[in-house]
Write a protein that binds this DNA or RNA. Structure first.
Lengths: 204, 204
DNA sequence: TTCTAAAATTGAGTCAATTCTGTTTTTGTG
DNA sequence: CACAAAAACAGAATTGACTCAATTTTAGAA
């Protein structure tokens, strides 16, 4: 069943994503016209809508790649965390934050976040929620790991704590991408300061 | 200077907001056409754009009213908080959450949040950020109050804690409005569970 | 009251996302 | 190698937010 049709399909998907990614970077999300993406990818406008439900879903495909990379990078930290609760958290969240602007500009993040709240039931909306859940799970996994290592009290409510830490980081990140002049270093400092309160509370 | 012109202006503002609020409720934000809002308000499309920069700003005006009411209601709690850290927090956040769907449907919240991240520099984008800040400040004020009452340790980093609590609640609220079937009672329970960790850490 | 400049209103026109319908390409079968 | 059905494509048509040049209304001076 991997006939001509399937190959052409995969190829067109790739061409559309590549054209869109380039244009989003150059012209911004709003500035990138579907017509232009279509021309660049050498397909028609109608075809793009055959592959993606709407403009947001194209961006969504790009965002998903980015976040999956971050999740992968995070696995290493969970497997081998620094032997100190504060550093462990800082390292994991640091990976999320430092990677974040690798492929995606702040404007692209803003658009992606906006679409995911605007259309939570669209393919991308659901995917984005799933990605958030995966990040939350990874933070929870780190906490479980730290508990196993005897660095975090056993009687701490791990799931609730993981969600709390993720939610705070995520909200800080949203505010960060909303302000074009905001710097990553300051974002990390602010989150560290907030987490210090938690670290003090959960350490053995 | 409160001549005819000023009165007509105020009256048109009111008519536009009323027409929009009704339509947003009935047809949803996306479903409400500017043309229809204009007809209902008995002004032309152009006039609406003379009063508001874009469709989002009309929704913004409605959201601002709602949040300002919530801020007012919160003042009472800050002035006279329950004599127990957990209850004090729960009461204040409870007011925010319980009021939230008074005038605004979940869809309207989703749109408002989306617009505020999409266009952070538009009038509404800036207003929304200011409202978030005001809520954060109010939570911080509660913490300061509880510290003054000797219910919260003096050496706790109040500003960071207030932001942490607000960010977590806000993110939980965002997830809540994204799921049409989510219930307020469950949202509050989940937030209480998260805050329990903090309450344990900051109580005297 | 009459007139003029400033302020506000109007609605037809523009622009870009999305939809729709007819056409072309691919596939599998006889 | 035909051929019919299914899948995918193309691009013109639609839709709805937003703009703008022309017109109308108001304020205040003479």
């Amino acid at each position: 069943m991997s006939g001509l049709r399937a190959r052409q399909k995969a190829d067109r998907h790739r061409r559309i994503i590549e054209a869109a990614a380039a244009l989003f970077r150059d012209a911004g999300y709003e500035g990138a016209k579907i017509e232009t993406i279509a021309a660049q990818a050498e397909v028609s406008v109608g075809t793009i809508y055959n592959y993606y439900q709407n403009k947001g879903d194209i961006l969504g495909a790009i965002v998903s790649m980015e976040v999956n990379e971050v999740l992968n990078a995070g696995r290493g930290v969970v497997a081998n965390p620094p032997a100190n609760v504060g550093d462990a958290l800082d390292t994991l969240l640091g990976i999320y934050i430092e990677h974040s602007l690798h492929y995606l500009s702040k404007e692209m993040w803003r658009q992606a976040m906006a679409i995911s709240t605007q259309l939570p039931d669209s393919p991308f909306g659901q995917a984005y929620t799933a990605l958030d859940s995966a990040l939350t799970e990874q933070i929870r996994a780190l906490i479980t790991r730290l508990q196993a290592l005897g660095l975090v009290r056993r009687d701490i409510d791990g799931p609730a704590l993981g969600e709390l830490i993720f939610n705070n980081m995520n909200m800080m990140f949203i505010e960060f991408v909303k302000r074009e002049e905001a710097r990553i270093a300051e974002l990390r400092t602010a989150i560290r300061r907030q987490n210090r309160i938690l670290v003090a509370a959960i350490g053995v």
